[in-house]
Design a binder for these strands. Structure first.
Lengths: 209, 209
DNA sequence: CAGGCCGCTGTGGTCTGACCACTAGATTTC
DNA sequence: GAAATCTAGTGGTCAGACCACAGCGGCCTG
């Protein structure tokens, strides 16, 4: 029974088993997964191996455990682990640079899509929000990323953003006015102008990245 | 000694301890960190707790363990966070569409960067390759992705591409001629024309994605 | 001396069984 | 009926036991 395909770590097998289990039962965020002891039974592995897998997934923010209750699938939202990564080994200069560039590119992609396809009413709602609330730069672009309706791209943005966050690439003082200008161009479906505003006013760059 | 700041999980404390330990000793990728038993001793926690922390960091790709040898810090470039997230929730239908779109966007981003910054000699080498070899569409864009010199973006492309591959979004018959046209525009630094060629000739789409 | 064999030690990999702390729901008690 | 209590189930942690493997040094043999 212990013929685990490869000779390698059991906890990885458990991770894989969990993955297919979740897929098979089409479990969604919020759902409960079997208890550690039951998994340990079902998969014929020690509880400690199961725990290693669960702890790893927990640190990744994929699951959430509540003592006395159980383990639950988590919505891919606020994984705080990523903050760790930043403080961990992210000192390399080149990496920082790539990170910033990639973030910019993705944000521009999102802007393009929004400029083409977003409903005017959604953009207007965003205008209202900008006027009403205090917010950080990444709050704003998170909303842009969501508007673009491409969940995968949104996810990539979130990841890149969380890495970027922890490495103090913080944007300083951007004025609401600039965001509003950007939104206005989006409403007018003027992709060119929108991106120009983004690069020059919001990211303080010259025209060619 | 067991006054762990909060009431929460020990393995997280261990992660934190490791972090500061690495920082304090300024350990770099490749360096060895203390053995599980020693950590367990030094931090006054059970070895299993240490292992939970290490396994989590390992899954994140931050460390690497070699049986019989020890645990080592790993090069951050290779982290598998993104892969994991992908394999986890990538089942539903809409995702396919997002996948294709995202791939296209990233490819366009790469093309833009190449058009601006790639050395003419590198592009010419690619021309030679196209003429000489038989290749698949993704072979070509892998080379584009590499040319762009942004390791992170390249990485994201590879991941998105591998998913796209498995879900048979294969491109049919594209003629070498089209790729050569594209490269010619890149050489001329004509971003506009290059992207137009990409969308219309290579991806068979109308101008606005 | 060179080459290889052997066993010791240290390391990660895994399992087991034992507690503890906590939660939620059933049960009892008033 | 409401409140207090008990209980079963769950995650959190630990200690100790093996195993498999890598590296090293010493010993034997040719």
């Amino acid at each position: 029974m212990k013929d685990r395909t490869s000779s390698s770590k059991i906890y990885l097998d458990v991770v894989e088993s969990l993955r297919s289990m979740i897929e098979a039962d089409s479990l969604l965020p919020g759902d409960k997964i079997p208890s550690e002891r039951e998994l340990s039974d079902r998969l014929n592995v020690g509880r400690s191996s199961v725990r290693e897998a669960l702890r790893a997934l927990e640190l990744l923010g994929l699951i959430e455990t509540r003592r006395g209750e159980g383990t639950f699938i988590r919505d891919f939202q606020e994984h705080k682990l990523v903050e760790l990564l930043g403080t961990f080994f992210l000192q390399d200069k080149k990496v920082q640079q790539d990170l910033a560039e990639t973030k910019r590119l993705i944000e521009i992609d999102c802007l393009r899509i929004v400029a083409f396809f977003a409903k005017a009413e959604d953009i207007k709602r965003l205008v209202g929000w900008v006027k009403a609330e205090e917010f950080r730069d990444d709050d704003f672009f998170l909303r842009i990323a969501i508007l673009n309706r491409n969940r995968l791209l949104e996810r990539i943005w979130r990841i890149v953003n969380s890495y970027a966050r922890t490495s103090e690439m913080v944007q300083g003082n951007v004025k609401k006015e600039d965001y509003l200008t950007l939104l206005t161009y989006l409403l007018e479906r003027d992709e060119e102008k929108a991106i120009e505003t983004y690069l020059i006013r919001i990211r303080n760059m010259s025209k060619d990245e």
